[in-house]
Computed example of a mutant assay.
Amino acid sequence: MPTSVELAAMRRAIIISASGLGTTSPNPAVGCVILDAAGRTVGEGYHLRKGDPHAEVNALAAAGARAAGGTAVVTLEPCNHEGLTPACHQALLDARIARVLIAVMDPTSRGEGGAARLRKAGVDVQTHVLEDEALVVLGPWRASQSFQRPVLNLLIQTNAAGYATAPTAEALAEIELQRHAHDLLISLDGLAEEGRTGSHGRHFSVPAQPVPDEPGDAVTALAEAGARTVLLVGPSKLGERLLSGSLVDCVTLLVPVPEPSQATTTTSAPLLPDGYVLSRITRAGGQLVVSAERR
């Protein structure tokens, strides 16, 4: 069983892995912490973008010789193949790591996975350690692998009656906050731009033309760009058609905070589209940020 120190290290790995959100695609955002043989943290790292070193390699570089005989705590199963970078399971073996804790198994492993190869080499491997917590970061990437398309999040400003309107200044500020965790932002006119400008590197492309209004064509264009997560600003024809096609995974509504005397007034429009359930509600200034996920 993982020790309290190892569990703390996994939570640290999960937290730092989120530093790669909006830049690693089509790769996942992964974090890694290295403990020495006495259980002290001696290195940590995360994956920044495709083509750059993976989380394990960055963490091992920080740890240096202190990694020998120690433990690698990583949010995703170390890769078992060489691509633009060497195989991470081999980097762990070369560093003489004795124990590896893994949160989420890699659904893209080719043949025998990295965990199996580490075990064959005599490394003590434990899997599914704090998996649900790691999926807070890795969930959208894993869902995009399962769906074979990007995870689509639609953000819509509503008025007091519950009807979609053009974004207010407060809504635009919320969009600026949320875009940084997404690969692409699709504006009201259908134009695509990086969530964080210039963050992905040469293995990612931004559609040069407006994204097509037809759901199938739109999803294809976004997937071909290498996107795993996309933020769409509504209301738009594309957003409406993606909703109708059950392709929107999360809807975020920006709802004006009502006056206390109006709090029991029934709105004229349904708050959520059919098929969605509330997942998070918070307040930002004079608006409520209401998120719902598709069943």
Rank of each mutant, 00 (worst) to 15 (best):
N153H: 10
T220R: 13
P210D: 06
A225C: 10
T264M: 13
M1Q: 12
D217F: 02
P86M: 12
Q157G: 10
L254Y: 02
C32Y: 01
R241C: 07
V233P: 00
R241T: 05
M10I: 12
A292N: 04
A98F: 04
S268H: 06
R149D: 02
A181N: 03
R110Q: 15
R110M: 15
T220Q: 08
L271F: 06
C32G: 04
L232A: 05
T3H: 08
D132Y: 07
D183S: 10
V5A: 15
R96N: 13
R12E: 14
A38Q: 10
V290H: 05
S205T: 13
H182S: 13
A72K: 02
E240I: 03
R117Y: 02
P107Q: 13
R117D: 04
V233W: 00
I102L: 13
K120G: 07
S279C: 13
E194H: 08
Q90D: 13
E240L: 09
V211E: 00
V123I: 15
I34D: 00
A161E: 14
L101R: 04
N58K: 08
T264G: 09
L231W: 00
H54D: 09
G113K: 01
G113L: 03
T24L: 10
L76P: 00
A55K: 05
A115V: 09
T266F: 08
K237P: 00
G45V: 06
Q148E: 15
R99T: 11
R11S: 11
T252R: 04
D217E: 12
S205E: 05
A63N: 03
L191E: 04
M1L: 14
D183A: 12
S4T: 14
R117I: 13
S261M: 10
V5S: 09
L92K: 00
